[in-house]
Computed example of a mutant assay.
Amino acid sequence: MSGLRFVDVCAGAGGLASGLEQAGFDPVLLLDNKAVACETLRLNRPSWNVLEMDLLDFVPDEHPKTYDVDLLSAGPPRVRSSATAARTETEREQRLLEAAILLTHSIQPRALLVENVPGLVSAPEFESLRSFIREELEHLGYRLRWFVLNAADFGVPQDRKQGVLVALKERYSDLFRPPLPTVEKHMSVGEALHRSMAARGWLGAEAWASQALSVAPTLVGGSDNRGGADLGPTGTKKAWARMGVNGGALADEVPGPDLDISSALIKLTDAQAALLQGFPPEWRFAGRKTARYRQIGHASPPPVGAALGRAVSAALEAGSRGPQPGYTGLS
């Protein structure tokens, strides 16, 4: 199906948008409130219409091209329960998710795609949020599908589970199928990073890659209010150490030929972190090292976005061929 158009809010560094682009979608508008993320989007796709604005301040009436698109996609900040986060942080995360849902009233896309934490799909602490979402979308004639995907099943060398909501207008809803895994064997960190580890002549690259046999733990971007970049909390750092990686900091460049071949723990670069998120090597990130890593850690892996985009596209294409069995004519 050609000519599919989408609006992407809370676009970040473009992980979801670039995946949807691979699936044949063209963006009408990409919105994010962080200047460095918008710079990244423009750096990679100068032709994209990128708007630097908080979603809570966005007025679709001022951007009429956003109306009646095929897909509204959103990757808002991960919602957290009040038991694990400060109240003000939790409230803002929930407000952004709710704002993304409420955009369907004015934009009226044929499909909505929201990516967030796995717990949003079924965890009891998020039942009130799910109830809000159901009421808003079913009232508009959408039917909801909730499911969890692991990025490792789509060729991303990372154990990264994502909670996904796909809502489609009724004529398309029964035609949607969540994407199936695209790989039979998960890619290990060693497989993904061997080439980059050897790029500057480090003689230990082969030995390092041969023992880094697991997928990566989930990359986390961390808070803008926290210090420098690292690869996660204590438990995650221990998992990295078992693969010969120092998870406490990032390197400015990959190891050179002068590095001791027996060095116990190697630091990753932000470019290597991007490979572990499934970004293509040519995708560039704006800002300083910590800002680049945070964009990467917060991103949705492009291969997952591509798989979701293809699944949505297939449903929209099938539904556009004419009324389906069981279709009532409501939309």
Results as ranks from 00 to 15, higher is better:
157 P>W: 00
212 A>G: 06
280 P>C: 01
219 L>G: 02
48 W>R: 14
240 W>E: 14
36 V>W: 05
240 W>M: 14
327 Y>R: 07
161 K>M: 04
289 K>R: 08
236 T>M: 13
175 L>R: 03
66 T>F: 00
19 G>T: 02
265 L>N: 08
137 L>R: 02
255 P>T: 13
5 R>V: 01
235 G>R: 10
32 D>R: 04
185 K>Y: 04
64 P>E: 06
53 M>C: 10
142 Y>I: 08
306 A>S: 07
311 A>Q: 02
22 Q>K: 05
77 P>H: 12
48 W>C: 14
326 G>E: 11
234 T>L: 08
287 G>Q: 10
175 L>S: 05
80 R>C: 12
186 H>K: 14
143 R>G: 02
321 R>Y: 08
315 A>Y: 07
29 L>Y: 04
238 K>S: 09
13 A>E: 07
13 A>H: 09
196 S>T: 14
296 I>P: 00
91 E>A: 11
53 M>G: 01
317 E>W: 09
252 D>K: 13
78 R>K: 09
190 G>Y: 14
81 S>V: 03
229 A>Q: 13
269 T>C: 09
28 V>I: 10
270 D>P: 07
117 V>F: 15
200 R>T: 01
190 G>T: 11
179 P>D: 02
154 F>E: 03
210 S>Y: 13
44 N>P: 11
239 A>I: 04
41 L>C: 14
174 D>Y: 01
80 R>S: 12
269 T>Q: 11
61 D>P: 08
105 H>M: 13
106 S>G: 10
141 G>R: 07
141 G>S: 13
216 A>H: 07
301 P>D: 12
96 L>M: 03
27 P>G: 04
154 F>T: 02
156 V>I: 04
331 S>E: 09
191 E>C: 09
248 G>W: 03
164 V>A: 05
316 L>N: 03
222 G>W: 07
136 E>K: 15
24 G>H: 05
244 G>R: 08
64 P>Y: 05
155 G>I: 07
225 N>V: 13
267 K>Q: 15
325 P>T: 12
328 T>L: 15
115 E>T: 06
194 H>D: 14
102 L>F: 04
35 A>L: 02
16 L>G: 02
18 S>K: 12
52 E>I: 08
109 P>T: 05
295 Q>R: 01
68 D>M: 09
185 K>L: 04
31 L>K: 05
240 W>N: 10
140 L>M: 02
248 G>L: 03
26 D>H: 11
311 A>I: 04
97 L>K: 06
66 T>Y: 05
322 G>S: 09
292 R>Y: 04
31 L>I: 05
320 S>D: 10
229 A>E: 09
298 H>A: 13
294 R>A: 06
295 Q>C: 03
107 I>M: 01
258 D>A: 13
199 A>C: 11
209 A>D: 12
288 R>W: 02
172 Y>A: 06
62 E>Y: 11
318 A>K: 10
81 S>P: 03
226 R>D: 14
146 W>T: 00
239 A>Y: 04
300 S>N: 12
294 R>M: 09
166 V>P: 00
262 S>K: 15
